[in-house]
């Protein structure tokens, strides 16, 4: 067990954790922010996507010690960014989520894409959103990203 200090969504958290615990479980079980989801634990599904210093990372693929000293943003912090709010509204307008389980990861990936690319093309959306959605929300997620970026849907 190691004492650690995290910055998540602008708040500071202090706790003891096994340095080898994946960041995903630090966020979910120790910090208690459950919007970030476990889907596979093996870096494929991207349900666990968070931002580390502004770039999207699979939180199952980082360990607890790697989160120290970084600026971590989770889905719960997305509403604090104008791009995030725009996307959340577009996801609702397009009624994109079905079960919703993968949507945190989708939104974190989409928000990063839109931050660096104000008018992403279909192909750019496809390549930025490799998230698995078992419900098949892809058409509407894509539509929502286009809508949020003022493009014809």
């Amino acid at each position: 067990m190691t004492a650690m200090k995290y910055n998540v969504n602008g708040s500071t958290y202090q706790f003891d954790a096994d340095p080898g615990m994946p960041l995903l479980w630090v966020i979910r079980d120790i910090i208690g922010l459950t919007g970030t989801k476990y889907g596979c634990g093996v870096e494929i599904c991207k349900a666990c996507t968070v931002w580390i210093d502004g770039s999207p990372e699979k939180s199952c693929d980082m360990n607890a010690s790697e989160g120290v000293g970084r600026k971590i943003t989770t889905i719960e912090g997305l509403s604090a960014t104008p791009v995030g709010v725009r996307l959340q509204n577009a996801f609702i307008d397009c009624q994109a989520p079905q079960c919703g389980y993968c949507q945190s990861g989708m939104l974190m990936a989409a928000a990063k894409l839109v931050t660096s690319n104000s008018k992403p093309s279909d192909a750019q959306i496809d390549s930025a959103l490799g998230n698995i959605c078992a419900c098949g929300t892809y058409p509407r997620v894509k539509q929502a990203i286009k809508k949020a970026t003022g493009q014809p849907t």
Binding site: L33, G35, S79, I92, Q95, G100
Partner: peptide, 9 residues
């Protein structure tokens, strides 16, 4: 859906 875009669901 509102709860499914902000992590609160």
């Amino acid at each position: 859906l509102p709860s499914k875009v902000d992590g609160s669901a």
